[in-house]
């Protein structure tokens, strides 16, 4: 489960490029339904059941920006899907696309609207962390509730961010 940190940052790098690509070339056809290569990598770091700072921050940010519709811990509500399930289907690219651009599914029986968070600074700045948390939930690596955090001295992600 514990991944090489460089790999993790490589993933984030790809993610950042994806974001840039989405922002600059919006509307370009994506490889529909095909898993992107980075989906095979784990965007989170877990040691002895404890998560890295990024995943932990993802939990906090999820609960702040997403909970009111998608329910606590990505478990869904009476009117928005459980993202724990959604992330078993959506790859990183598709996830990013929906968060940045939103999505509408409005009919006589359904009024589902995901807002576009592309201009929400706090969401965009924490997007990778939110993804890491939800992916960890979806992979069954993190349970319900607040995840336990790695001690700072054992958390390379925390150290890396302190330095940058």
């Amino acid at each position: 489960m514990l991944k090489d940190l460089r790999q993790r940052w490589a993933v984030l790098g790809v993610a950042a490029m994806t974001l840039v690509a989405l922002a600059s070339a919006h509307g370009q056809d994506q490889k529909d339904g095909q898993a992107a290569p980075e989906a095979a990598e784990k965007p989170y770091l877990i040691k002895d059941g404890k998560v890295d700072f990024g995943t932990y921050n993802g939990y906090r940010r999820y609960e702040a920006y997403c909970l009111r519709c998608h329910g606590p811990d990505g478990a869904g509500s009476s009117y928005a899907p459980a993202l724990v399930e959604s992330l078993k289907r959506l790859d990183h690219e598709q996830f990013t696309d929906v968060v940045v651009n939103g999505r509408k599914n409005v009919s006589t029986s359904q009024q589902s609207v995901m807002p576009a968070f592309g201009y929400a600074e706090d969401v965009m700045l924490n997007l990778e962390d939110i993804y890491a948390y939800l992916k960890a939930r979806s992979d069954g690596e993190v349970g319900r509730g607040r995840p336990a955090r790695l001690p700072k001295e054992q958390d390379p992600v925390y150290k890396e961010r302190q330095e940058s």
Binding site: A64, P72, Y119, E121, D122, V123, G145, R146
Partner: peptide, 22 residues
């Protein structure tokens, strides 16, 4: 449980700044 953290304001975007579990 309730954990407040810093947020910035953008018109029309959630302005919450806390994580809670019930």
């Amino acid at each position: 449980d309730y954990e407040p953290f810093a947020v910035s304001y953008t018109a029309g975007q959630p302005y919450v700044g806390a994580t809670l579990s019930m």
